[in-house]
Design a protein around this nucleic acid. Structure first.
Lengths: 341, 341
DNA sequence: ATGAAAGCGCTAACAT
DNA sequence: ATGTTAGCGCTTTCAT
């Protein structure tokens, strides 16, 4: 027999209303009664019935806030589709979603969005904006107001967010190294392209790659690590220079940065098909590069799942009181080749 | 405003009971009334509320049947874990699962299981047993009794199953060819290992591989296609012979078959690390082979997702009347290398 | 501080 | 053939 709120009430010799108050941390219950009820709840191993809760919430649905970049940011497209799947499943379950689209490079917008969502009374927040002190403060403010925050895609470290769902950037790099090792001959020379090594997120892949090369006992040489600062021109100029100076470069790991710039330089040097290219993510430019057979591999970390899982975790937490089991949920690392498309 | 059964009743000038009868195809409604109600249902775009249904079904849950191999068949482990995730989500939603474990090489067991489940009154069935005429008949029998069947992992073609969830075997082969092409030099010789070319499932990967080699304009040569009939000895003997006769084999595509036999032969010929090996699936023997760096790649088709999706589709169908959108749901093709583990 | 009762949308048993 | 009603387990409002 599944144990209901009614059973608890009977055991405790109180009404269902009182039990409900205790279970939902509502005021107006004598501490000793509260304790006794909680004891019984534990003893009987009570678990709330989702369907019943959902039905009761129909009139005044629980609201979950989502803060992320707007539709124009194509990188988030698949994450959005994962969120959609989850929200489809939750459609009838007494949940409403409240979106706030912000520039994910503008911490102040993200921080403000969190506070606003807390003000309007959301029960939980999904959040993806570049890490920053302002944001940390907002997240902690939400936490203190009992509004749990799940970060996704990019984490806000040392904040009071309940968990993070995203990529294992270091592992991307390790896997990229494994691929290079298999497609290039011994002693071959490779170049790493990244954005800005000051950012942890950019550094992690590069470090993973280097470590991967080492630990696999490979003999590949990293000729240079280029910081392109996510700009076409910088990337183009530096890579161009490098390829000019080193005609024997046979692999490029595009850890972070402008794919188009990279491919243009390869064309300029007439190295199509001669230089092996490993990328990350499946942006339109990467997909095109694969179709054109200029990119050999791209490493992807299940963005749909990031979206789906974050929302699901948040729902389970606020609706069933189910605490996330981990602090970091890393989505699986997958490898694509042109034939995978 | 979401439209409820009550609204429909009001519009039609009947009671909620009658509407319920119509919506659930229960007898005892005058045809003209039924038609009128259905019209209104369409017009108002009525969608049943899952939470309410689930709650009402608490006492007498809807039962879904699952026919698949028992725990000993390790291949299904991940599929099972996907089923578990889905059933976790559906726990409170008025659904009960009824398992029948059968040898998936024994169609008569599978066919009997379907009939039995239909007899005991399940509302839908998930099914995975090798294709066979007996099974086709059972599935059609179930369909005729209004019990939808979703096949997963291996399809039962030309049957009245509502849809199939599983791998795109042909694509596995194409992707394998893409990998071989990237890691082997031009003109290299490869061997294909399969089970029994009489089986469509075994043939599909082999054909995909060959076609992949061709269409990518590669120059690799398929030296031989070995049928190992899923037996260690046959595989061992034939591969051994082939490697003895052709010292220049530099790639093996393990489309289907006994991985251990394959690896043993490679060791025997001291070709560890010299012959590139591409496998399918992530069986324990494959995983071990990767850790030992004897297998370079394995191609996997999201078995968890197969389990999850099949159950979810079945639930949506019987619970919300949502017809599957496709007849074939192919799970995504993923590539793993040792560093992915 | 606590109890009682109505209601969320749907099903099913019982009436008519 | 159709209407009425009592739940399903939880929330919430209104009494006490």
């Amino acid at each position: 027999m599944t144990v209901t709120i009614r059973e608890i009430a009977k055991h405790a010799g109180v009404s269902r209303g009182t039990v409900d108050r205790v279970l939902n941390d509502r005021p107006g219950v004598k501490p000793e009664v509260r304790d006794r009820i909680l004891e019984i709840v534990n003893e009987l191993n009570y678990v709330p019935n989702i369907a019943a809760k959902a039905l009761a919430y129909q009139k005044k649905p629980v609201t979950l806030g989502i803060v992320m970049p707007p539709k124009e940011i194509v990188f988030f497209e698949l994450i959005r589709s994962g969120i959609s799947s989850a929200s489809e499943e939750l459609k009838d379950l007494g949940v409403r979603l409240e979106y706030r689209y912000v520039d994910n490079k503008r911490p102040e917008e993200g921080a403000a969005a969190i506070r606003e969502l807390v003000e309007i009374g959301v029960s939980g927040i999904m959040f993806s904006v570049m890490d920053d002190e302002l944001i940390r403060e907002s997240i902690n403010y939400a936490a203190q107001k009992n509004v749990p925050v799940v970060t996704f895609n990019s984490d806000v470290e040392d904040s009071k967010r309940v968990c993070f769902v995203g990529q294992d950037l270091h592992k991307s790099g390790v896997v990229a190294a494994g691929l290079m090792n298999r497609v290039l001959p011994a002693e071959a020379k490779v170049v790493i392209l990244t954005g800005n090594l000051k950012f942890h997120a950019h550094r992690a892949r590069v470090e993973g790659f280097k470590q991967g090369l080492k630990s696999s006992g490979g003999s590949l040489q990293v000729e240079r690590v280029i910081e392109g600062f996510d700009r076409y021109e910088d990337t183009y100029a530096q890579l161009n220079q490098t390829l000019s100076e080193h005609a024997d470069i046979s692999g490029i790991y595009m850890a972070t940065g402008d794919t188009d710039a990279c491919l243009e330089v390869i064309k300029l040097h007439r190295k199509e098909g001669k230089i092996r290219v490993v990328c990350n993510d499946m942006l339109p430019s990467v997909e095109q590069g694969m179709r054109d057979r200029m990119i050999d591999f791209t490493i992807v970390q299940n963005p749909e799942r990031q979206g789906y899982l974050s929302l699901r975790l948040l729902f389970d937490l606020v609706f069933a009181g189910k605490q996330p089991e981990m602090e970091h949920y890393f989505t699986e690392t997958h490898i694509y080749i042109p034939e995978s498309l």
